[in-house]
Design a protein around this nucleic acid. Structure first.
Length: 848
DNA sequence: GCAAGGTC
C-alpha cells in the first residue's frame, strides 16, 4: 500500500481552501498543480474541482447535424469525457500516490454524482486506494471536524439517479432541438432549442401572453368620498354587498354608478356605523435562500442574472456565504449573537447590530425549506469597508446583512382601524393602519411599511363629507411574469435548480424566445410551444420533471436501475418522434413563418417586399430586403447591441421602431429610415484639422506613392451617420479613418472654448427638459479619459476588485489587466493601501 | 453547435 498523502476532493476551490484551513488549523499552504490550487499540510492534500469536471455527450460520429437523423440520437451511446482537463490531470497526479482519498463534495444529489465522477478518475489511476465520503452542510469547524471523524461511503445509487437525469436531458434535449432546428432549416448559431426545463418555463410565459391576448377589458366605476372629523380628513370608498353577500367596490353598470354618485355628491355628512380595531403581528422574514434573495434584489432593481453575479463576487471575496442554496433554516452552528457582535461599532451597521444585541432574546426565524446543501445566505464575520466594493456590490451586501438582521429581529405590530359610515344610504369604508411597534422594519427597510391614516372616530359620530369623486376604470389583463416571479414559479413547479433557474431565463433571451423586461415571448417562442403541445407534450410540461424526480427517487432507494429508467424514457421519446416525423414539414413551415415575422420591420420602399433584419458576414446587423438579390435596398443599424423590433411604428414610413439591446446600454433606435434621412440631411460641421492627415500632421508611416511626412489636408468634422450614431471624424473618410466617438443622446453644441493641447473646440451636450448639460470638452481628451475608464472597468471585471480598488490600482500605475498580471505582488502590495501580496496573487489568478 | 447541472 502506498504511503503517499491523503487526498481530499471538494466540489470547488473555495471549499477546498476553507476545509484545509479547518483541518490543518490554518497551517495549510497553497501550491499549484497543473494550474490548479492544491492545499497542503502534514501528509494531506486538498483539491477543489469546478463542479462537474466530466460531461456527458454523444460520440463524435454523431456530431454532424445533417448526417445523423435526430431520431438516431435516441438510441445513440452516451459517453463521459473530461471537460476540465487541467483539473482532471491534477487529480490523477495526486491520486496515483495517495494512500487514502476522501470525497468531500456538496451534500446533495449533484454533489454525490460529482463525487462519483471524482471516484472514477481516482480509480482509473489507483485501483486499491480506499475512498471515503464525508458529508456536511456547512463549512464550520464543528461540522467539518465531525464529518471527517465519521467518514461514510459514496452512495452509488444516489449518483446513478443523477446520471439518469443527465442522460435523459441530453437525449431528449438534443434529439428534439435538432429536429426542430432542421425542420425550420435553422442551423448554426440560431438553432431552435427545447429541453426539460426551458420547455415548461417558456410555456409559462407563452400561456400568460395568451391570457393577455384573450383578455377583454370591462368597464367599471369606483366612488370615493373624503370625510372629515374635526380637522382631520381621510379618504373613504363606496362599497355594496353583491349577490353572494360579499363586499364589492366596483360598480359594473354605468347608470348605477351615476345614480349612486349623484346621491353621494349631495350628501353633506356621513354617520359612523362601525369601528373595528385589530392589532396584527407582522413576523420578520425567513433567512434568504437563492430564490428569495433574487426576489429581494429584484425589488431594489437588480436582474436575477446581475444579483447572482454580484452575490458570487461577494462570496468569492469572503463577505457572504455560498449564494446557491435552497435552505432557509440557519444551521445550529451559526451563533447569531456572535455574528451580530462582529457588526457592532461598524460605521453603517453598528447601531442596528447593537440594538439587536440588546434584545432579551435572539431567536432567528426559520423558513419551510430545511436542506443539507448549504446554509441560508448570510454575511460572514468578515466585513468589507465600502471602499472594497462597488456601489452595486455594497447595495447587495447591505441587503444580505440587513436580511440577516431582520431574521434575528423582533416582530412588528400594526394597528388596523376599519371604519364604516353611511352617507345618504350609501356605505363608505376606510381602512387605516399604523405601525405600533417597528420591530424588524427598523433594520430592514426593503418592505413597504407605509401607514394610512384614519382618525379615531366613534360609532354614531357625524362626519362631514368634504369632497367626492367617481373614477372610471377598466379591468386589467394579468401581468407578465417578472424575472423573480418566474424564478419563484419555477421553484414551485419543481423545475430547474437554485443554481440554474436564472440561467434558464437568460438562455430564453439568448435563443430569441423572449425579449424586454418583464419578458415577452416572440412569435418563434409561441410556435415552439405550439409544436411542443401538439407533438411532445412532455417537453413543455412540468410533468416531465415530476416524473423524473420520482424515477430518481426510485433509483436512489434501489427500487429501480438507471437502465430501466432511461430505457423507459427512450421508449416514450420514440413515440413522440413517430408523430413528429410525419408532420415535420408542417412544423418547419410554421416555425419559419414565425422566425420571419420576428425579423420583419415593414415593407420595402423600393420593391414592396418585406424588409427584414439581417446579419452581415462581419457579424453586424442591418436591414435588407427579403427579395435580395433582386432588390438590394438596405438600411444601416447602430453597431452596438442586438436589434429588436418594437410594436409601435413610424407614421411616415410605416416601419416598426427598432430597439438595440445591449444590457444596460440598451436604447431605442427608432425608425431606421428616419435615422438615415436625418443623416442625409445634416451637413458635416468642420471643427479643426485631422491629427493624422491634416495640415501640420506628420504621417507616421510613409504612404506608397506619397511624399513621406506630407499631410493630406484632412479636417475633423462632426458627422451624423445613417446608422444613427455621431462622431468626430476625418473629412477624407474613407481614405483616413481617424475618428472619435460622440454620445448617442443629446444635442451636440460647439462652444467658443478650445483645447490648447489639441486646438479643437470644446463640446457640450445639451438635453431636452431639465437634465443638466454635459461638458464633454475636447473630443480627443474625452476619448483618452474614456479609454482609461474602460481599462478601469476591465480591472473591475476581475473578481475581488471593486470600483474604488480599481481606482487605487490606477493611481498606483496599474492601468489595465495585463499590467495587473505582470505586477510583482509584494511590490504592488507596498504601494496600494490595505492590500496584501496574497490578495494581489488572488486577483492575478482570478484575472486568468 | 443540441440539455441541464455543477462552477467561474
Amino acid at each position: 500500500m502506498s504511503n503517499g498523502p491523503e487526498l481530499i476532493i471538494t466540489e470547488k476551490d473555495n471549499a477546498a481552501r476553507r476545509i484545509a484551513d479547518i483541518l490543518s488549523g490554518e497551517s495549510a499552504e497553497a501550491e499549484r498543480v497543473n494550474g490548479v490550487n492544491v492545499y497542503k499540510w502534514g501528509g494531506k492534500r486538498c483539491i477543489g474541482l469546478s463542479g462537474h469536471v466530466v460531461g456527458v455527450d454523444f460520440p463524435p460520429e454523431y456530431n454532424d447535424w445533417r448526417d445523423v437523423e435526430p431520431v438516431e440520437l435516441i438510441d445513440a451511446p452516451v459517453d463521459k469525457h473530461p471537460t476540465q482537463e487541467n483539473i482532471v490531470a491534477a487529480m490523477r497526479r495526486l491520486a496515483r500516490r495517495a494512500r487514502r482519498v476522501v470525497i468531500a463534495t456538496d451534500y446533495d444529489r449533484e454533489g454525490e454524482l460529482i463525487g462519483k465522477e471524482a471516484y472514477e478518475i481516482v480509480r482509473d489511476v489507483n485501483e486499491d486506494v480506499p475512498v471515503d465520503r464525508v458529508r456536511f452542510s456547512s463549512i464550520t469547524d464543528r461540522e467539518v471536524t465531525e464529518a471527517f471523524e465519521n467518514p461514510d461511503e459514496l452512495d452509488f445509487d444516489l449518483a446513478a439517479a443523477g446520471e439518469a437525469r443527465q442522460i435523459i436531458d441530453l437525449v431528449w434535449g438534443a434529439a428534439l432541438t435538432r429536429f426542430l432546428s432542421l425542420s425550420a432549416r435553422q442551423l448554426g448559431d440560431d438553432f431552435i432549442s427545447v429541453g426539460r426545463v426551458q420547455g415548461p418555463t417558456l410555456k409559462l410565459i407563452v400561456d400568460r401572453e395568451r391570457e393577455i391576448d384573450a383578455f377583454d377589458p370591462e368597464d367599471y366605476w369606483e366612488l370615493f368620498a373624503d370625510l372629515e372629523q374635526g380637522r382631520e380628513g381621510f379618504e373613504s370608498q363606496y362599497f355594496y354587498l353583491d349577490e353572494d353577500g360579499n363586499e364589492a367596490e366596483r360598480v359594473w353598470d354605468g347608470d348605477d354608478a351615476e345614480t349612486a354618485y349623484e346621491t353621494l355628491e349631495n350628501a353633506s355628512s356621513a354617520t359612523v356605523e362601525s369601528v373595528r380595531r385589530r392589532t396584527r403581528t407582522d413576523d420578520p422574514p425567513a433567512p434568504f435562500n437563492t430564490t428569495q434573495f433574487i426576489r429581494a434584489a429584484g425589488s431594489i432593481g437588480y436582474s436575477a442574472q446581475r444579483a447572482m453575479s454580484i452575490a458570487e463576487d461577494l462570496y468569492t471575496a469572503g463577505y457572504m456565504t455560498y449564494p446557491r442554496t435552497d435552505n432557509t433554516v440557519y444551521p445550529e452552528d451559526l451563533d447569531p449573537e456572535e455574528l451580530l457582535s462582529e457588526f457592532s461599532g461598524h460605521r453603517t451597521f453598528g447601531d442596528d447590530a447593537e440594538s439587536l444585541l440588546d434584545q432579551d432574546e435572539i431567536e432567528p426565524t426559520a423558513g419551510d425549506n430545511e436542506t443539507t446543501d448549504h446554509p441560508p445566505i448570510h454575511p460572514t464575520g468578515e466585513l468589507p469597508s465600502p471602499s472594497d466594493l462597488s456601489e452595486d456590490e455594497w447595495e447587495v451586501y447591505e441587503l444580505v446583512v440587513r436580511r440577516f438582521f431582520a431574521t434575528v429581529a423582533e416582530s412588528a405590530e400594526w394597528e388596523h382601524l376599519r371604519v364604516v359610515a353611511d352617507a345618504a344610504g350609501l356605505s363608505l369604508k376606510a381602512n387605516g393602519k399604523r405601525l405600533v411597534t417597528e420591530g424588524y422594519h427598523a433594520v430592514y427597510p426593503y418592505f413597504n411599511s407605509s401607514e394610512s391614516f384614519v382618525p379615531d372616530v366613534e360609532e354614531g359620530e357625524e362626519l362631514s363629507v368634504t369632497d367626492t369623486r367617481i373614477e372610471a376604470k377598466q379591468t386589467q389583463p394579468p401581468r407578465r411574469y417578472g424575472q423573480s416571479r418566474l424564478i419563484e414559479t419555477m421553484e414551485k413547479m419543481g423545475i430547474g435548480t437554485k443554481a440554474t433557474r436564472h440561467d434558464v431565463i437568460q438562455k430564453l433571451y439568448d435563443r430569441g424566445y423572449i425579449e424586454s423586461d418583464p419578458p415577452k415571448p416572440t412569435r418563434l417562442a409561441r410556435s415552439v410551444v405550439e409544436a411542443g403541445e401538439e407533438f411532445a407534450e412532455l417537453i413543455v410540461s412540468e410533468e416531465m420533471t415530476a416524473q423524473l424526480e420520482q424515477d430518481m427517487q426510485a433509483i436512489t432507494r434501489g427500487e429501480a436501475t438507471l437502465e430501466e429508467v432511461t430505457d423507459e424514457s427512450r421508449d416514450i421519446l420514440e413515440d413522440v418522434f413517430e408523430g413528429l416525423m410525419s408532420s415535420g414539414e408542417e412544423v418547419g413551415k410554421h416555425l419559419q413563418e414565425s422566425l420571419k415575422a420576428d425579423k420583419t420591420v415593414g415593407t420595402c420602399p423600393e420593391c414592396g417586399g418585406d424588409l427584414v433584419i439581417r446579419k452581415s458576414r462581419h457579424g453586424s446587423y442591418f436591414i435588407g430586403c427579403d427579395s435580395y438579390p433582386d432588390c438590394t435596398y438596405t438600411l444601416p443599424l447602430p453597431s452596438t447591441g442586438k436589434p429588436l423590433i418594437m410594436e409601435d411604428s413610424c407614421d411616415e414610413h410605416e416601419l416598426h421602431h427598432v430597439k438595440m439591446l445591449a444590457g444596460r446600454k440598451t436604447f431605442v433606435h427608432g425608425c431606421p429610415l428616419c435615422k438615415a434621412e436625418e443623416a442625409d440631411e445634416q451637413e458635416d460641421l468642420v471643427i479643426g484639422t485631422c491629427p493624422e492627415c491634416g495640415e501640420g500632421a506628420a504621417s507616421e508611416t510613409p504612404q506608397e506613392g506619397g511624399d513621406e511626412g506630407t499631410a493630406e489636408g484632412g479636417e475633423l468634422a462632426i458627422k451624423r451617420l445613417r446608422s444613427g450614431s455621431r462622431l468626430v471624424g476625418c473629412t477624407r473618410y474613407p481614405d483616413c479613418d481617424y475618428s472619435l466617438p460622440l454620445p448617442r443622446r443629446g444635442d451636440v453644441e460647439v462652444t467658443d472654448d478650445s483645447c490648447e493641447e489639441h486646438d479643437l473646440p470644446k463640446i457640450r451636450i445639451t438635453y431636452d427638459g431639465d437634465s443638466e448639460p454635459w461638458d464633454l470638452g475636447c473630443p480627443i481628451c474625452n476619448y483618452r479619459e474614456y479609454q482609461a475608464e474602460q481599462n478601469g472597468s476591465e480591472l473591475e471585471a476581475v473578481k475581488g476588485i471593486g470600483e474604488k480598488t480599481a481606482q487605487k490600482l490606477q493611481d498606483a500605475g496599474i492601468g489595465d489587466v495585463s499590467a495587473l498580471k505582470e505586477a510583482e505582488p509584494d511590490a504592488l502590495a507596498d504601494v496600494v493601501d490595505g492590500i496584501g501580496p496574497d490578495t494581489v496573487r488572488k486577483w492575478q489568478t482570478n484575472a486568468d
